[in-house]
Design a protein around this nucleic acid. Structure first.
Lengths: 265, 265
DNA sequence: CGCCAGCTTGAACGAGGTCAACGGGAGTGG
DNA sequence: CCACTCCCGTTGACCTCGTTCAAGCTGGCG
């Protein structure tokens, strides 16, 4: 759970395509793919206001723009694996990812989901503690570790911002421990839906019509449940009229009050 | 889980009593209770090397020493409650605490334990996300929020240190999510004992003779189990010769390899 | 001595896991 | 266009691990 900085996105493209970038077969592209000679491409980045970069001034942004790269991942691709050396920091420009840890026998625990605007790589350690895998097509802004850490040293506001992001991550991790350690299956699922809803609201999307990019298996691995239990619990919520399943990947909250009651126990 | 910065301590007093402080009925004491006129009491603090303060230079330490306070708590006393305004940062000088969250019906989740040298209050938010309660007699160094945050702004090394502490907290929170979401009772208890052991080793104590200041209930609330299950599992480990229960509050690891096998699943 | 809190142990129960089958949609190939 | 496969989600039947409920047991403390 690094994220929760400003969780946003899910809108399936928006600003990205508007940038008229050539996707270059999914590979790295210089400085956001902006027109050659753009004096400060980062200043125009459409996720900047909700990302950590909001803490940087124009000269710092220019410095960052000279070394960052845009990358894209396809659904199911991994950005890095648990144990990999930590060589870069990222901001999610579009799409979503999951972070997870594995046990030797394959048991999996998803520790967080990342959406548009979220910061990734808040490790300040040499090794990644989790694997990061794309849930769908993803666009990222990649910043080399050295440059970014230098910027953190120079910019008080960036350091402060990162501490805020880290602390929000800790608070939401504590919340998740409460969920995993003490809540029932119904309470877990209800809490999860409310969390998705709150994130949607944060970015101005409808808090009742949720875009859900993750599979039932991913939800189970996040909530400490099996696929079957997730499925049964979703069905129960649907049958009792609390939620409504619309198109694939969309869950509508029909009765928010009741959902909140269920989440509270 | 703020802690894990440098988890240490447990030795039941040591440096503290050597400071010849008047405990002043458990209330606040100026600048570590050092002799009046000491030019830089923080420089002599015996937990400094393992605490965040290690990142400060002498002038910064002097500044800190002019505003900090020592406090003590008795077993069971709360330093602050979830939802309380966040007014200070703390370093644990001696003793241990638990951090926890509660649900409306009383279900409790312990999110971390703090030992000597640990930093507390890494929130950078206005409200505490957990309750902090003493497991035994505790001595703390309390720094006012405003001064400390100013120091963070001025000192690059302190900011860096805090980011490290925060990130270690995030990594160990992820580890705990894996434990709560996917491990069996035996694996949870074994992982917990190994964690205690690693902390003991960090500070130079025996990694096989563990000081365990928390009750079975606290362990259960940390591991997402009931007291009964903790008790039964401890008994099972004891019966199978993996651990040995010595004096109250002491657990000896008799067969480390087997304990590691159990923790791994 | 009696009381109380913490720990242990036993017996029965149940929430969620496991195993198995099935259905539907997307992709592929004839 | 259909046949086939694969993946994902759903549903059912059964089982298990940990919970719940209920005693006891121990040690500290008035």
């Amino acid at each position: 759970m690094y994220e929760t900085g400003s969780v946003a996105g899910l809108s399936k493209s928006a600003g990205w395509s508007a940038m008229k970038m050539v996707s270059d077969a999914g590979m790295e592209v210089r400085s956001g793919g902006s027109a050659v000679g753009d004096p400060n491409p980062c200043a125009d980045c459409d996720v900047r206001s909700r990302a950590v970069c909001a803490a940087l001034d124009n000269s710092e942004l220019a410095e960052l723009a000279s070394v960052n790269r845009h990358r894209s991942l396809e659904s199911g691709e991994c950005l890095f694996f648990e144990g990999d050396p930590n060589e870069a920091y990222y901001v999610v420009l579009d799409g979503s990812l999951k972070l997870y840890k594995l046990l030797a026998d394959g048991r999996r625990q998803v520790t967080g989901f990342l959406f548009k605007g979220d910061f990734l790589g808040l490790t300040f350690a040499d090794e990644h503690s989790v694997t990061a895998e794309a849930l769908e097509g993803v666009k990222l802004c990649q910043m080399p570790r050295s440059t970014f850490e230098m910027l953190v040293g120079d910019s008080h506001s960036l350091g402060r911002k990162l501490l805020q992001v880290a602390n929000r991550g800790i608070a939401s991790a504590q919340e998740q421990m409460l969920l995993l350690g003490r809540k029932t299956a119904q309470e877990r699922l209800a809490s999860f839906l409310l969390w998705l809803s709150a994130r949607a609201e944060d970015r101005g999307d409808s808090p009742s019509k949720l875009y859900v990019p993750m599979s039932r298996t991913d939800m189970g691995d996040y909530l400490g449940l099996t696929v079957e239990t997730v499925s049964r619990t979703v069905t129960k919520l649907k049958t009792s009229g609390v939620i409504h399943l619309a198109d694939k990947g969309i869950i509508e909250i029909s009765d928010l009050d009741r959902l909140e009651d269920i989440a509270a126990g």
